[in-house]
Amino acid sequence: MRGWRARLLSDTPASRRDAALGRLYRGWLAFRQNRLALLGLAIVLLLVAVAAFAPWIATHDPYEQNLPQRLLPPGSAGHWLGTDEFGRDIFSRIVYGARITLLIVVLVAAIAAPIGLVVGTAAGYLGGWVDSALMRITDVFLAFPSLILALAFVAALGPGIENAIIAIALTSWPPYARLARAETLTIRGSDYIAAARMQGAGTLRILLRHVMPLCVASVIVRVTLDMAGIILTAAGLGFLGLGAQPPAAEWGAMISAGRRYVLDQWWVATFPGIAIILVSLAFNLLGDGVRDVMDPRKR
């Protein structure tokens, strides 16, 4: 036990890998100090576990309709959270909905963050007309509220979960580009970039190996904080019928369906809503913690 800790915290790491791992471990020690961030991390990990083991956790088939048992209140006949208007088990649907939510969050982050990073660092480092062109495109995307723009994209591409993901990704990269560009501008003039240029490093090498690693931290922080917004946008699209299509168990679409019964059968819309709030909050807390550890300005 003590062996690997000493090795990770050693001031004289024995290899590049040890040095990198030691750095990560120190980050984790700092992150651990933040109780709320740990709570956020726990909920996010729970979400991942629920999504991965959905078939074993769910008590019913989320798509199986049972009309005689429709709109049962929570706690009745083995349905912990009640049933919806088709007699489907709400708990099982929320469990399966975690898969869709996670899919959306991960794919949007995986598409939007690299686009923003590449556009921003290229604009910031190359400057001149490249900068002007890329930043004007970014401005065009930033000029519209992201939900409205996502709506327009989905309307053009056709409703569906894949198109919702593409639409959300297309609307969420500009802030990352802005962030990466600002960061790059401060890095560009530094002596270590000048030293790399003197050693004959090409533009691509400088961008990939010197500039981007420094911008990644703040982009990751921003992405984590934005995940709540991504979940809400996805739920909003689902609510409007432009995201996941029935009978898919998507939390936003579930709220939308439960809206009609909200006065008499409150549980149909409430439990998916609680799931959305909980997961959004967890990502926000996690992002806060990650920022405290990774934000270069706080070091």
């Binding site: 590049r16 530094s190 002596d191 030293a195 790399a196 003197m198 690693p213």
Partner: peptide
Amino acid sequence: VQMVFQDPYGSLHPRHT
């Protein structure tokens, strides 16, 4: 030709060993 810079705190990449 190579160069040594004035400020050693700014001439080494902070994330490179």
